[in-house]
């Protein structure tokens, strides 16, 4: 039963990852791709949670913590770049 739950969680996260990469490929604008990257970072945190539970290697939770902060910094950096000097989409 528990193994089935882990497999189901992995399958759902994998489908979500494919959908996230699909939006990353489609675009159509740079902010859309940043949103997709942020969701992919959240998905990786979910994968780490499943892996920690299935393998029992608790130090990986620290990786999830660092990943959450790094994804935030990346999103803020992209937003600053777009707002200060990015090209406009409508001209």
């Amino acid at each position: 039963m528990f193994e089935i739950a882990i497999i189901v969680a992995n399958v759902l996260l994998s489908i979500s990852l494919v959908l996230g990469f699909w939006r990353l490929y489609l675009g159509p604008t740079l902010p859309d791709r940043v949103v997709a990257l942020e969701l992919i970072a959240s998905l990786t945190i979910g994968f780490i949670a499943v892996y920690v539970i299935s393998s029992g290697r608790t130090p990986f939770i620290d990786v999830a913590m660092v990943l959450a902060l790094t994804a935030f910094l990346a999103a803020i950096g992209f937003a600053r770049y777009l707002e200060k000097g990015g090209h406009r989409e409508d001209d």
Partner: peptide, 22 residues
């Protein structure tokens, strides 16, 4: 049981988010 419940529900919400993204 509780852990599996949280994992599956969390993964389902992630999938809703990815569906919304697409």
């Amino acid at each position: 049981l509780i852990t599996g419940f949280f994992l599956v529900i969390g993964a389902a919400f992630m999938m809703v988010a990815a569906l919304g993204l697409v």
